[in-house]
């Protein structure tokens, strides 16, 4: 266990370093993109004069490394600066939207992860049966079109035609949890459909891959029920790839859902990033990217720790 804690500590430390590298990369990526904040904000009303005035006001005329270091100095003490466009604190601009994104991701994940793992176990158990085929065809079909298209179809059938759910997941301040779950059901369902196939198929593959192993054969010859063989004997050794795919999809739920946000008019962090990139509003872009980076780092770490925990050989290396 001590070794594991050391690993987590080491990885968290490296995580900070990774964040630093990411922040440098993002800063210079935004710098390298053609056009800058002044041009983007002023749009077609940009004249040489107004652009120059705006650059001077926002300090964009100073060299890039200086600006980066200034930002870094602020970030080091927890001050991520103000949006260059609106002048709002970055934390204020991001706070509510980040919360929205996390809530929707949690909602979708709480449905998708158990469903796909249970489905994965079932199709591994009933492999090559009609159920296996149908479940696979349905989930594969659902990921074969862009997620916003899936959203349109769900809206058409579950909202416009039947009126069961609202088409727009608009938020009000005084919503109860039940209200929230009802109003955001369609976006959550869309996300569930998008991520289920991947996790389910990986569960299936990882389990089937082990079924011919001698120890499984042994269990089966001993007359253990097929379901028990899978859950007790195969699954524990199949966790590593499953956990990794789950982590990948959880990360997607947080970082990749801008189109779902747009389709359901859900104010999440994805749209904020898209707008900020369009305006080259560096502090916001940077903050969003760092949140995404932290998501990946933490989820990847969790997946690695999970892989180690589920494999005694990794837990107690020789």
């Amino acid at each position: 266990m001590g070794k594991l804690l050391r690993l987590i500590g080491q990885r968290l430390g490296l995580g900070l370093l990774t964040l630093l590298v990411v922040s440098v990369l993002i800063f210079f990526a935004v710098e390298l993109l053609p056009g800058d904040l002044a041009e983007a904000v002023l749009g077609q009303a940009a004249t040489e004069e107004t652009v120059a005035a705006m650059r001077a006001q926002l300090g964009l005329d100073r060299p890039a490394p200086v600006r980066y270091l200034e930002w870094l100095a602020g970030a080091a003490v927890g001050d991520f600066g103000n949006s260059l466009v609106t002048g709002d604190r970055v934390s204020e601009a991001i706070g509510e939207r980040l919360l929205n994104t996390l809530m929707l991701a949690t909602y979708a994940a709480l449905i998708a992860v158990p469903v796909s793992i249970v489905l994965g176990i079932l199709v591994a158990l009933l492999r090559n049966s009609l159920f296996d085929r149908v479940a696979n065809v349905l989930t594969l079909t659902s990921i074969s079109s862009p997620e916003f298209f899936l959203g349109y179809i769900l809206i058409l059938y579950l909202s416009v035609k039947t009126g069961w759910f609202p088409a727009i997941a608009s938020q009000t301040a005084d919503m109860s949890l039940g209200d929230y779950l009802y109003r955001t059901f369609l976006p959550a369902l869309t996300l569930v459909l998008v991520v289920t196939a991947h996790m389910m198929r990986m569960t299936r593959a990882a389990i089937i891959n082990l079924l011919a192993s001698p120890y499984i054969e042994m269990a089966r010859l001993k007359g253990v029920y097929p379901l028990k063989v899978i859950v007790r004997h195969a699954l524990p050794n199949a966790w590593a790839p499953i956990i990794n795919v789950v982590a990948l999809n959880l990360a997607y739920l947080i970082t990749g859902v801008v189109l779902v946000e747009v389709v359901f008019v859900y104010p999440g962090i994805g749209q904020l990033l898209v707008d900020a990139v369009a305006k080259r509003d560096f502090p916001i872009v940077q903050a969003c990217c760092l949140i995404f980076a932290a998501t990946f780092i933490l989820l990847n770490l969790a997946a690695d720790v999970g892989s180690i925990l589920t494999n005694p050989r990794l837990r107690h290396p020789k």
Binding site: L14, G15, L17, T18, V21, V22, L25, I26, A29, V30, L33, A251, T255, L273, V274, V277, V285, C288, C289, F292, A293, F296, I297, N300
Partner: peptide, 13 residues
């Protein structure tokens, strides 16, 4: 860690 970094950069950017 390199992979962490690569994954962290949003595909839009």
């Amino acid at each position: 860690r390199v992979v962490d970094i690569l994954m962290s950069v949003p595909s839009l950017i």
